[in-house]
Amino acid sequence: MSDTISINGTQHSLPDDPRRSLLDFVRQDLGLTGTKKGCDHGQCGACTVIVNGIRINSCLTLAVMHDGDEVTTIEGLGTPEAPSELQKAFVAHDGFQCGYCTPGQICSATAMLQEIANNWPSDASESLEGEMNVTGEEIRERMSGNLCRCGAYANIVAAIRDVAEESA
């Protein structure tokens, strides 16, 4: 067991205070403020990060529980100079307004497309088995853990569909 955590490929020591959430660890200790705190209770999705390939709410987990884990935050997905396809699509489709929920939306969507590729079903899936499709209703259900108060959902769905269809 290691006592370090990998964030976007860089190893970091875990915090001393076990109360520190993974969210506060990346924001406060590492200065990676792209991951947002919207509610601190797993109710908004703004803090979504990808841990070992799986999306989770970083506010509802302690940093010390993640020794040896590989975490990807929004900063690990792309930069202004080299944005990811989803990041570009969010800009092109205006998939945000104030921008505060946006890193969480994009981390969530990145992992979500992989979940569909893995044929994981959702509450919106007609059938639990077989191939899962990237329909509007599937995206809407699977992205419902990321609130957007500006009301950019319609554009968020369009941005994700665009990327999913490009890569299909």
Partner: peptide, 21 residues
């Protein structure tokens, strides 16, 4: 026109109030 600050927002590099070092 796409938002001029768009790339800053989608890459998490746009700083909000609590995020200034």
């Amino acid at each position: 026109v796409s938002r001029l600050e768009g790339l800053a927002k989608v890459t998490g590099t746009a700083p909000y109030a609590a995020e200034y070092p």
